[in-house]
């Protein structure tokens, strides 16, 4: 484990904490995409199936459980919490799951390193994670008055991806035979998805204005 990887994971964790705190403190999930959260739940479930078969480290196991637990908590709040669910922007969060899930599933059936259930689901989770933020970005574009915390949540998620790329470069340079092309390409695609958001986020921060994305 190198510093970039640790910082990446901590940024990812922080992004989820920011989202949990925002929803819990304001009793509102305004501007948060349930579709993105549910896609992340699918990503984590498919990827962390090895929780039961392959022990890597205590760190790894604890982080996986936290990611699963926090994502399901957010989904539960948004769907069932008496006060919070009323604040969900149902009519604006209209991105269709199948546009992302079906292509990723097909791609994982074709492009994988081993044709087994575990490996295909794991690969599917890698592809799906790359595009899972799209419903959130679309919702953000539609919502005026994006609150700072939602903007920070997305900024932290994008930063986590950028740090993972640095982690891969570091590992490539220091570990013999370290290669994972599918993961690298998906990760680069995932980071590119955030570039537009980063541009507007940094611009609004420099100009001391509220974040808004052009339609």
């Amino acid at each position: 484990m190198n510093l970039f990887r640790l910082l990446g994971d901590m940024t990812h964790l922080l992004s989820i904490i920011v989202l949990l705190l925002k929803i819990n403190a304001t009793r509102s999930c305004r501007g948060v995409s349930l579709k993105t959260q549910e896609l992340y739940a699918i990503v984590f479930v498919c990827r962390y199936l090895d929780l039961f078969t392959n022990f890597i480290s205590l760190y790894n196991t604890v982080m996986k459980v936290i990611f699963l637990g926090s994502t399901f908590t957010i989904i539960y709040w948004m769907r069932f919490h008496k006060v919070i669910r009323v604040t969900y922007d149902r009519d604006q969060d209209t991105f269709r799951y199948q546009f992302l899930i079906i292509p990723c599933l097909l791609l994982s059936l074709i492009l994988n390193s081993e044709f087994t259930v575990m490996e295909v689901l794991w690969t599917f989770s890698i592809y799906l994670e790359a595009v899972a933020i799209l419903p959130q970005l679309v919702l953000l574009q539609r919502t005026n008055n994006i609150d700072n915390l939602t903007g920070n949540y997305i900024f932290l998620l994008g930063s986590y991806r950028a740090l993972y790329i640095l982690n891969w470069i570091y590992r490539f340079l220091t570990e013999p035979n370290y290669r994972q092309y599918l993961v690298w390409i998906s990760g680069i695609v995932q980071t590119i998805v955030y570039i537009d958001f980063f541009y507007y986020y940094i611009r609004s921060w420099k100009n001391n204005e509220k974040l808004s994305l052009p339609a």
Partner: peptide, 10 residues
């Protein structure tokens, strides 16, 4: 192996 190694990332 390689497959197990990949999965040390979250």
């Amino acid at each position: 192996g390689m497959a197990a190694k990949q999965k040390d990332e979250l």
